[in-house]
């Protein structure tokens, strides 16, 4: 079976579900709103991160998007109908992942730009320079996409949106805000920590902006591979 019709079908499925469109809007709103608040507060000392502080919140919406898009297949026998239409499971899952990634990437890049403009307007001269700022905007788009894909892969393994969110949300909140602040080292290699290095002006850990995104990409690739493996192995 060719890939394009399968991708088109998955895209129709995503844009005809209101909760999914809603979580994409939430990525933008949450990131921009929390970033603007943080910029105004200016307690954050890292100039770039004070602009992109809200990504920590926006990524929860991106995770919700990736989770919901895949979880909608694991209810009421939807997956059986889907796989009856597209029996090549790898191809189908690749189409699903692409249909998840592209809208998040577009939304994430847009969100990054808006956040940067708002942050520079609020911070003025104390804000990051344009080169650094644009790196942050692109990084914001890529990071959000990788988080959505990580969630999508995990959902295919766990076969449930509730299970995925109840693993990922506490993990992000606790690991990022509690453990992450206390220790560096291993915690820096966790997907959301590694992916957010690109949003900082200064990076003291082992990872730089792009190597950080590469580590996050490895996590997403691992989750997607596990999801594809589980999908191919199990009965639908």
């Amino acid at each position: 079976m060719p890939f394009a019709p399968v991708l088109h079908a998955e895209w129709i499925k995503i844009r005809t579900l209101r909760p999914l469109v809603g979580s994409l809007a939430a990525v933008l709103v949450a990131t921009v709103a929390f970033s603007a608040l943080a910029s105004a507060d200016a307690e954050e000392t890292d100039p770039l991160y004070s602009v992109f502080f809200g990504v920590s919140f926006g990524q929860i919406a991106a995770i919700a998007f990736g989770t919901t898009a895949v979880a909608s297949e694991f209810r009421g026998g939807a997956l059986r109908l889907t796989l009856a239409a597209v029996p090549d499971r790898r191809r189908w899952f690749a189409a699903k992942a692409t249909a998840v990634a592209l809208p998040v990437l577009a939304t994430g890049l847009g969100t990054g730009l808006v956040t940067l403009l708002v942050g520079k307007a609020v911070l003025g001269d104390s804000g990051p320079n344009w080169t650094e700022g644009l790196r942050g905007a692109v990084g914001c788009g890529v990071h959000l996409t990788l988080m959505a894909l990580f969630a999508a892969g995990l959902t295919a393994v766990l076969r449930s949106g509730v299970a995925t969110l109840s693993v990922l949300i506490p993990f992000l909140l606790i690991v990022s805000f509690v453990i992450g602040d206390m220790s560096s080292g291993v915690a820096d290699l966790l997907p959301d920590r590694a992916g957010q290095v690109v949003l900082h002006s200064a990076h003291d850990g082992a990872l730089g902006p792009w190597s950080g995104l590469a580590v996050a990409a490895l996590w997403s690739a691992a989750a997607l591979s596990a999801g594809a493996w589980s999908l191919c192995r199990r009965d639908a």
């Binding site: 499925k13 005809t16 579900l17 209101r18 909760p19 909608s72 209810r75 009421g76 026998g77 939807a78 059986r80 109908l81 009856a84």
Partner: peptide
């Protein structure tokens, strides 16, 4: 081949 397996296969939020 056309098949009906589960009546619940269509997502409730979709038309």
């Amino acid at each position: 081949v056309g098949a009906l397996l589960d009546a619940g296969a269509a997502h409730g939020s979709r038309s």
